[in-house]
């Protein structure tokens, strides 16, 4: 291997290889988390966080391998949309899961929402759609 190729392509290949492997590892982390965690909320943690980083690393590796300038804006936009939508879906699933009691109270060290939800449910039935839905619903 002559030093000229080492400086260019090899470095790019090495970086993208590392990023792809770590990105795949993050997807594995999400899968392990989905299987191992006890309830819906903790599983949402597994489904949101490693996913975002994994996608970032895979897109970055893809951008390095494509070697064209024009592909970067698409990748950035794809990642930004992921950043914007993941918390919204996690929030909606978490909210629905909390209200339908898909959680283990014995695994919570504190729950400061329970009293609030019960008060709201007692006051107005199920029509307590406050800012949560309208702010994140689009």
């Amino acid at each position: 291997m002559d030093p000229e190729t080492f400086s260019g392509d090899t470095v790019i290949d090495a970086v993208s290889a590392v990023f792809m492997v770590v990105g795949a590892l993050m997807s594995l982390a999400a899968a392990v988390g989905l299987l191992r965690f006890p309830d819906l909320m903790t599983r949402m943690h597994a489904a949101t966080k490693p996913q975002v980083l994994g996608l970032f690393l895979l897109l970055f590796a893809l951008g390095l391998q494509m070697r064209t300038w024009w592909v970067w804006p698409v990748l950035v936009v794809a990642w930004i949309f992921q950043l914007l939508t993941v918390p919204v879906s996690a929030h909606m699933v978490g909210r629905a899961g909390y209200r339908t009691k898909h959680l283990h109270p014995e695994l919570l060290s504190a729950d400061e929402l329970e009293a609030v939800v019960q008060q709201a449910a007692g006051k107005s039935g199920f029509s307590d759609d406050d800012g949560g839905a309208t702010t994140d619903g689009r």
Binding site: V117, D130, G131, T134
Partner: peptide, 9 residues
């Protein structure tokens, strides 16, 4: 951390 609920008021 994960947001479960937002109280806008």
């Amino acid at each position: 951390s994960l947001v479960v609920e937002v109280d806008r008021s």
